[in-house]
Structure formats: C-alpha cells, structure tokens
Amino acid sequence: MKTFYSKQDVLNRLKEAYNIQKDTDLAGLLGISKSTLSNWVSRDSLDYDKVFSKCEHINIDWLLTGRGSMLKSEGVPLMGDKEGGKEEVLPEINYEYKGAPYYNVDFIGGFDLVLNDQTRNPDYYINFAPYNKEGVIWCNITGHSMEPELNNGDFIVMKEMHSPIQYLPAGEIYGIITEDYRTVKRIRMADQKGFVRLIPTNKSPEYAEQEIPVEMIRKVYAVLGSMHRLF
C-alpha cells in the first residue's frame, strides 16, 4: 500500500528532534511499550495522536516530509500560513474546487450493509498535491477489519480502476462496491473460477476472509493512502 510518507522516517525524525538514539527511549517518550513501537514499525502504522502530542515545537511539515526546518520557531510556514511563498505540504480543506473531492461516504472495514449513499455532491475538497489528480476521491473508512493499516474514522484516498478485476495487481488494498455494501479489503483471485477473495488485515477471528463472485462487484477503487483527520 502506498502511503503519504514513510512512517519509519517520521519516527527517525522524531528521534532526531529529541536527540534520541534508542527505540527504547523513543517508546518512553511516546508513553508506549517497546513492543508496541516495534508493531508500529513492522506494520507501518503509527498512532499519530501520540506522535503529534510530542511536537509542540516541531514543524509538522518537516516531521512528515523532511522538508524545511525542524522547529516551528525557525520561520517555516505551517499549514495555512501563506507567508514565505512556499508551497504548503500538509492537506487543507476548501470549497473552491481545489484538490480532490471529499464525499461523506463510508467504506466499511467489514461486510456491514451501508445505507448512506451521498455520492452525487462532495462535502468539500482536500488540497494535497500528491493526490490532486483526475479521478481521485476522498471518502471515510469505518470499522476495524483493516487495522492497523487503516483505522476506524480515517480518510482514505482512492482512484477508480477500469481494468477487469482479474488483471489488477493482487494483494493490494481496494475499495469494493456491490449492490448491497461498500468494503475495503486486500484482494486476490480465488481458487474457484469467477470469484475473488477479500482479505482483512485484522487477524482477529471475527474478521474472516470471504469469497464473492466477480459479477457482484459494481466498482473497484485502488486505495492510494490514508490519514487521520488532521482538521
């Protein structure tokens, strides 16, 4: 799965900001166990609330991308700061058709029925340069079956795929729409001809793999990335 930025690099920059060398010390700074930190790294999934809570004087742009100065006090424009003439890196919302549209539509990290179908008009636009492309949209993900890769309440950014599903890269994360539900899962072709297997990330027994016939699928979106709600 493609993400906005390397999560390992984010942790390395946090170490740099605090002059920390050991993962044990970083875990202590964040108030978590070393095993939890190891899980973050191995699964490429961070708790950004905890990370950002230690960034009062750190330039978030630098933390996420490595660009600009480390500290806010060094005059680097922050999100929403137009001074300095530098391009903003962090996403921002607007109602002026700048960026990719955000639809208040839930893709379920599970197989629940979805009743909201607010797909005609976007609530607003999210201006974030890497994803300001034709055919890209933002939606929500609810549920826990794709954790820790995708968390309940995250924004997900997706692009509709038009190739037949059997020719899409196997093992990637996709948004699937049928007549009855919208879900996000990893996909691979099933052994049974004409079926695909939907695979959750969460290994809890309540989130089982499921096979569905290809003919049930109305639309497929490649999930390009996700983020916590930063605004």
Results as ranks from 00 to 15, higher is better:
Ala208Tyr: 14
Leu113Asn: 13
Leu90Gln: 13
Arg218Trp: 07
Val114Asp: 08
Phe107Ile: 09
Asp106Glu: 15
Gln118Gly: 06
Gly143Lys: 05
Leu115Arg: 11
Asn132Arg: 05
Phe107Leu: 14
Val157Tyr: 00
Asp117Phe: 07
Ile177Leu: 11
Arg218Cys: 11
Lys185Ala: 07
Ile177Ala: 03
Asn94His: 15
Ile177Pro: 00
Pro130Asp: 04
Val184Phe: 05
Arg197Ala: 05
Arg218Pro: 06
Ala100Val: 08
Ile93Ala: 14
Glu179Thr: 10
Thr201Met: 06
His144Ile: 02
Met216Asp: 15
Glu96Asp: 14
Gly194Val: 09
Asn94Tyr: 11
Val184Met: 05
Glu92Leu: 10
Arg197Pro: 01
His144Asp: 14
Val184Ile: 14
Leu115Asp: 10
Asn116Gln: 12
Met216Ala: 14
Tyr97Lys: 15
Thr201Arg: 05
Gln210Thr: 13
Asn127Lys: 14
Ala100Tyr: 05
Asp123Ser: 12
Ile108Trp: 08
Glu92Trp: 12
Leu113Ile: 11
Pro130Ser: 04
Lys133Pro: 00
Met158Cys: 15
Asn152His: 15
Tyr181Phe: 15
Thr178Trp: 10
Thr119Arg: 15
Ile93Lys: 13
Asn121Gly: 00
Asn151Phe: 04
Lys159Tyr: 01
Tyr97Asn: 15
Ile93Leu: 13
Leu113His: 06
Asp191Phe: 07
Pro205Thr: 05
Phe195Gly: 05
Ala170Pro: 00
Phe128Gly: 02
Asp191Lys: 05
Tyr102Ile: 03
Asp117Trp: 12
Ile199His: 05
Ser163Ala: 14
Ile137Trp: 03
Asn152Trp: 03
Gly175Leu: 03
Phe128Ile: 11
Lys98Ala: 13
Gly110Gln: 06
Arg188Leu: 01
Gly109Asp: 07
Met161Ala: 15
Glu134His: 04
Ile156Cys: 05
Tyr124Pro: 04
Gly171Met: 03
Ile108Gly: 03
Phe195Val: 02
Gly110Phe: 04
Pro91Cys: 12
Ala100Cys: 13
Tyr124Leu: 02
Phe111Lys: 02
Ile137Glu: 11
Phe155Asn: 06
Leu113Ser: 13
Phe111Cys: 01
Pro169Cys: 00
Pro200Thr: 03
Gly135Trp: 08
Pro122Ala: 04
Asn121Cys: 04
